[in-house]
Amino acid sequence: MAKKKVKKSLSSITNDKNRNIINPKSLKPQQTRQIIRRFHVLQKNKHSIITKLQKSNTSIDLDNYDDIKQNKIYQVEFNNFKIAKKHANNEIYKIDVTLNEIELIKILAKIDSEIEQRGGIKIYQSASNQGQTNKRGGDSSKKLIEWLKTSKYETKLKEDLNALEIGCLSPYNNISTSKIFKSIIRIDLNSQDPLILQQNFMERPLPTTENEKFNLISCSLVLNFVPSHEKRGEMLIRITKFLKSPNKGKLSSLFLVLPLPCIKNSRYFDNDKLLEIMNSLGFKQNYIYEAKKVAYWLFDWNGKVSKNIKFNKKELHSGSTRNNFCITIN
Rank of each mutant, 00 (worst) to 15 (best):
125 Q>V: 06
127 A>V: 05
91 E>F: 02
80 N>Q: 15
133 T>W: 00
158 K>V: 12
121 I>F: 02
142 K>H: 10
109 A>R: 02
130 Q>T: 14
166 I>K: 07
74 Y>K: 13
167 G>Y: 06
54 Q>M: 08
63 D>L: 12
63 D>V: 04
53 L>A: 04
74 Y>D: 11
134 N>W: 00
121 I>P: 00
115 I>Q: 05
144 L>F: 08
143 K>G: 02
109 A>L: 04
121 I>Q: 08
127 A>S: 05
125 Q>E: 05
98 T>M: 06
109 A>V: 03
97 V>T: 14
90 N>E: 09
59 S>P: 00
143 K>D: 07
60 I>V: 12
60 I>R: 05
158 K>M: 07
127 A>P: 01
70 Q>L: 06
122 K>C: 01
163 A>Y: 06
95 I>R: 03
148 L>Y: 03
134 N>K: 05
154 E>K: 15
115 I>V: 11
55 K>L: 11
143 K>I: 14
124 Y>E: 06
56 S>E: 10
106 K>E: 15
67 D>V: 08
106 K>F: 02
82 K>V: 04
77 E>Q: 11
60 I>T: 03
79 N>L: 04
149 K>V: 11
105 I>S: 07
143 K>T: 13
154 E>A: 15
93 Y>F: 15
58 T>Y: 06
161 L>R: 03
116 E>T: 05
161 L>G: 06
88 A>E: 13
167 G>L: 10
134 N>H: 02
97 V>C: 10
85 K>S: 12
52 K>S: 12
88 A>I: 15
119 G>F: 02
132 Q>F: 07
137 G>Q: 09
81 F>A: 05
78 F>Q: 04
128 S>L: 13
159 E>A: 15
135 K>Q: 10
86 K>L: 13
166 I>L: 13
63 D>P: 01
151 S>H: 11
106 K>C: 12
53 L>R: 01
133 T>I: 14
164 L>W: 06
